[in-house]
Design a protein around this nucleic acid. Structure first.
Lengths: 243, 243
DNA sequence: CGGGGGTTTGAGTCCGTTCAAAATACGTGG
DNA sequence: CCACGTATTTTGAACGGACTCAAACCCCCG
């Protein structure tokens, strides 16, 4: 699974030409501050499966994800992992503990070779102090995350594994799906079965069984990390999203 | 259950003498802005069981809880309610959707007679724009909430009903418990059994059974809304919080 | 005293888990 | 490039925790 270091994705290491800038919180910075940021940031590369920071670690700064995919995990006392959420390029990692104080509540692990820009705590606070608009950007970011977290919590309580999987497929389809026509789609999953299971809060065995049922129902055909969906509208129907 | 309107708790309706000010986000406001706030706010009283705003409603402003207790709920398609979290005096309600944009993701319902101060959206934004420090206070608030939400999500996935109930008792003990000595405690619950069940994501029937088991184990003796806990350390032990 | 909501109890069922084993994919070294 | 050893995924069978449905109970209030 882990690719070698040479395979690291290469992206611009200059904030001014960074293709993720428009998607990140930093887009509102003026040139002068962007220059600061550019000078202060530390570019880091990770193989798949490496840990950027651990749950319980004190927060030393934040990480801008430039390329790759990162999973946030939490471990219980027996060491079982739960996948809390995923992050894609353009997202900032670790801001919750920076802004809220306290230690990281999740671990951040790469699940694909990734590149991040580390920005030291004091630099972030300095930029926030100088740019009220930046503070408001983060405010919006965290608020949205809180809304999503609430939604997920609720779904975990009320939906079955089957529905949670269908829901996840639709979400992953938005990012990794290649729509063949309005209804058909193929998804190239970025996740192992174990992570897929952890993401919907169940066991790999249960996931495998659920996948089999979906195949028998002709709703989704899994083949390794390829998923063929013959009728997207059928999936939507199951979730009660359409009448 | 619902008390009559005359029983409404009376608290200062003047921001300057408000006893919750130190606990709320507004504490950093200078006199001039506090005067604005004071003039703009609208004091509202609710009986127990009333709804302050509904899930899906557009956000028109925020609410400062002055007295009482408020429950945030979400409903699924069949109308089953899940209790997402509780709010106590000093907390601000509805800021998530104000700050993050979009509609309310939960309903806010009073579970005791309550008094709130409503502050119109535009006033909040105006104050935020004029006070970067206020923005940062909210940033901290939302970030902490996000951390708590993450924690709760994880616990919901990994803990049994028994453990979630014990956990809840310990949390409620912090606020409603009267410690008799280091180990003993008595809690006066602010919640019905139904709400208690919803708060740990289960059914009233299951809760009743779990309560019975806890009694048989001599861990907690429920009598109506009174809970007697003979040995707090035993509860802590069960959660693996102590070695 | 007689509703009527909330709470408790019981019995049966189901969904998801656990444990164990087989099948498949994967990376590594020959 | 193939062969081997290991890790992951899939399958099966049995178990268990929580849910559903239904009835009894209780307490508060009229």
């Amino acid at each position: 699974m882990n690719r070698r270091a040479e395979d690291h994705p290469t992206v611009s290491s200059d904030c001014f030409t960074c293709q993720n800038r428009s998607r990140s919180e930093w887009c509102i910075l003026a040139d002068e501050d962007l220059k600061r940021l550019n000078k202060a940031k530390i570019v880091k590369n990770y193989d798949a499966g490496e840990t950027i920071y651990y749950e319980g670690d004190p927060c030393t700064g934040i990480y801008d994800l430039e390329a790759g995919v990162v999973a946030f995990r939490k471990y219980d006392l027996e060491g079982n992992a739960t996948l809390i959420s995923l992050a894609y390029p353009g997202r900032t990692l670790g801001y919750r503990s920076l802004l809220g104080g306290g230690n990281h509540v999740t671990s951040a692990e790469t699940i694909k070779p990734s590149q991040v820009c580390f920005i030291e705590k004091s630099v972030v606070w300095d930029l926030i102090d100088r740019n009220p608009a930046l503070s408001q950007r983060f405010l919006k970011r965290v608020s949205k995350d809180l809304g999503r977290a609430t939604e997920r919590y609720h779904q975990e309580l009320t939906l079955t594994v089957r529905h949670r999987l269908i829901n996840l497929l639709l979400i992953l389809n938005d990012r990794y799906g290649t729509a063949e026509d309005a209804d058909k789609a193929t998804i190239e999953l970025p996740l192992s079965r174990q992570d897929l299971a952890a993401l919907i809060g169940t066991r790999p065995e249960t996931l495998a069984r659920t996948i089999r049922v979906l195949r028998n129902n002709d709703l989704a055909h899994f083949n390794g990390r390829q998923v063929a969906i013959p009728r997207l509208d059928k999936l939507l129907n199951e979730l009660g999203l359409v009448s």
